[in-house]
């Protein structure tokens, strides 16, 4: 464990807490749309469920296991909240990204490009590829509405920072322990790249107190 990875994981936790806060806040304003993509959240739940199939077989550390359990539980909880409890705040008319294509694409690629052709490995690889593109429905929703609330932008910023720090962590690990993981690296680079546009607007507008609006 290094500082980059630790802070990255903590930012991931922060993003989840921001999301829960945001949903709680949206519910208190009757009839309002949350503008959180249900599809993105459902994809994240799928990512965690397919990645941590080694939860009981592969023990790394108490930290590792606790985080895995938290990510699985919180992602399922968020999906549950959006689907049942806060259903009214969720507007499917804005959430129109064709998620089935990225699920199909990730599944096909996982069957072709993987480290070993076993059920667990293919599921793990699928989760890596799917995570890389899971934010797309949310970003697509953002471009559709053309603007975002501050709390939503903080959520995306926390997620983007978590991914960016993982890139730094991999460079650090390569030099210090000759750690290599091509599948994770390439998928991670793609995933971080998706946040570039968002980061640009976040830094030039939101941090200066302006509203998040697309040009």
């Amino acid at each position: 464990m290094n500082l980059f990875r630790l802070v990255a994981d903590l930012m991931h936790l922060v993003s989840i807490f921001i999301l829960l806060l945001k949903m709680q806040k949206t519910r208190s304003v009757a009839g309002r749309c949350s503008r959180i993509s249900f599809k993105t959240q459902a994809l994240y739940a799928t990512v965690f469920l397919t990645r941590y199939t080694d939860l009981f077989a592969n023990f790394q550390s108490l930290y590792n296991t606790t985080m895995k359990v938290f990510f699985i539980a919180s992602s399922l909880y968020i999906v549950f909240l959006m689907k049942f409890k806060f259903k009214a705040t969720n507007d499917p008319r804005l959430d129109t990204f064709k998620a089935q294509y990225v699920v199909g694409g990730a599944a096909a690629l996982a069957l072709i490009v993987n480290y070993a052709f076993t059920v667990q490995e293919v599921l793990w690889t699928f989760s890596i590829y799917l995570e890389a593109v899971a934010i797309l429905p949310q970003l697509f929703m953002l471009t559709k509405t053309g603007e975002a609330e501050v709390i939503t932008t903080h959520y995306l910023f926390a997620l983007g920072t978590y991914r960016g720090l993982y890139l730094v962590n991999w460079i650090y690990r390569y030099w210090t322990e000759y750690y290599v993981d091509w599948i994770v690296w390439i998928a991670g680079a793609v995933q971080t790249g998706l946040y570039c546009d968002f980061f640009y607007i976040y830094f030039t507008k939101v941090l200066k107190g302006a509203k998040f609006e697309l040009p």
């Binding site: 990875r5 290599v180 993981d181």
Partner: peptide
């Protein structure tokens, strides 16, 4: 050198 993937990340 080829190293086995550790899978110690989240």
């Amino acid at each position: 050198p080829r190293q086995r993937i550790k899978k110690d990340e989240l």
